[in-house]
């Protein structure tokens, strides 16, 4: 699906300006691009940066019906909304907007249940690779070597592949997208909305505050993650994986931009030794190899 930027302007702002988000916030770009693609969205937000950037009660930045709920309750609450709206005969697009902590870690059980029931929900995970709203602690999404406040010497384990866990649920649609390519987020969101059942879209969302990067390069970091092979872009439709247009050429490691160009722009990787970088590269290639088996 080819999307023009002017197509994305059709809707009124879903995220109203003047909110609590940090300057250069990747999550905000992801939210605007994803939610503006949807008809009558209801958004469920667990504990995460998205629950903080909405500003203080009684004023909120979100211009769509929103339910804030506890950390590990996003998919259950969304299931309840979906079923209730079905009983009321009302057409809504029910959405989970969760961070990586809520998706990879504490909320895994609740979404696994909802995915197994194939509830009619789009689950977006904006992934900045750590607990951002509590001030940059390690999560299951943190890559090996990255410094967080709870891994001050760099994380010693590899990053979890939540999309492949999701794929094991055999849901009808899984996609990855990046703040580096907002039109692709919009297109994938629109596509997911047309599919019945549980949909999952993982969005790489740079966080200048937690990554210790320049706020102006948030979009560039998203693109570099794709070009270096750090964050593969693909869709899994009914079990079949297809690499997305922007990312397919990076299946071939020789086409990739050196990973150092990505790492050097972020303070969180400043302690990386050559050995750490080699290990990280192995992790990334392992993920590509596993994904290739789903093609």
């Amino acid at each position: 699906m080819s999307i023009k930027i002017t197509d994305m302007m059709d809707r009124p702002d879903v995220l109203l300006r003047g909110n609590f988000a940090c300057a250069g916030c990747g999550l905000s770009v992801a939210y605007r691009s994803a939610i503006s693609a949807l008809d009558k969205p209801i958004v469920v937000i667990p504990a995460c940066c998205a629950s903080v950037i909405q500003s203080l009660h009684p004023n909120v930045t979100y211009n769509v019906p929103t339910l804030n709920i506890a950390f590990a309750a996003h998919a259950s609450a969304a299931s309840g909304i979906t079923r209730a709206k079905k009983m009321r005969g009302e057409d809504y697009t029910v959405v989970i907007w969760s961070g990586d902590g809520g998706t990879y870690d504490i909320g895994l059980s609740t979404w696994s249940g909802a995915a197994e029931r194939n509830e009619n929900i789009i689950h977006f995970c904006y992934d900045n690779g750590f607990y951002s709203n509590t001030g940059a602690q390690r999560s299951g999404a943190t890559p090996r070597g990255a410094v967080t406040t709870t891994t001050p010497a760099g994380k010693s384990e590899k990053r979890k592949s939540v999309a492949r866990i999701m794929a094991a649920h055999d849901i009808p649609y899984i996609a990855t997208a990046s703040v580096g390519y907002p039109r692709d987020i919009y297109a994938k969101s629109k596509k997911a909305a047309k599919i019945e059942g549980y949909k999952f879209i993982l969005i790489d969302a740079p966080c200048p505050t937690g990554w210790n990067s320049d706020p102006a390069i948030t979009q560039e970091l998203g693109q570099l993650a794709v070009k270096t092979g750090y964050f593969p872009l693909y869709e899994i439709v009914n079990g079949k994986l297809v690499f997305s247009k922007q990312g397919s050429k990076y299946c071939d490691p020789t086409n990739r931009v050196p990973i150092e160009e990505y790492l050097d722009k972020q303070g969180r990787f400043s302690q990386m030794t050559p050995k750490n970088i080699e290990d990280l590269k192995k992790d990334l290639q392992f993920e590509w190899d596993m994904l290739a088996k789903l093609e």
């Binding site: 109203l16 300006r17 003047g18 909405q54 203080l56 930045t61």
Partner: peptide, 17 residues
């Protein structure tokens, strides 16, 4: 009830940042 309403400038005039 704990209902917040959509507001431009919910965090104030953030241009001052």
């Amino acid at each position: 009830l704990p209902l917040g309403r959509p507001t431009i400038g919910s965090a104030g005039n953030t241009g001052t940042w």
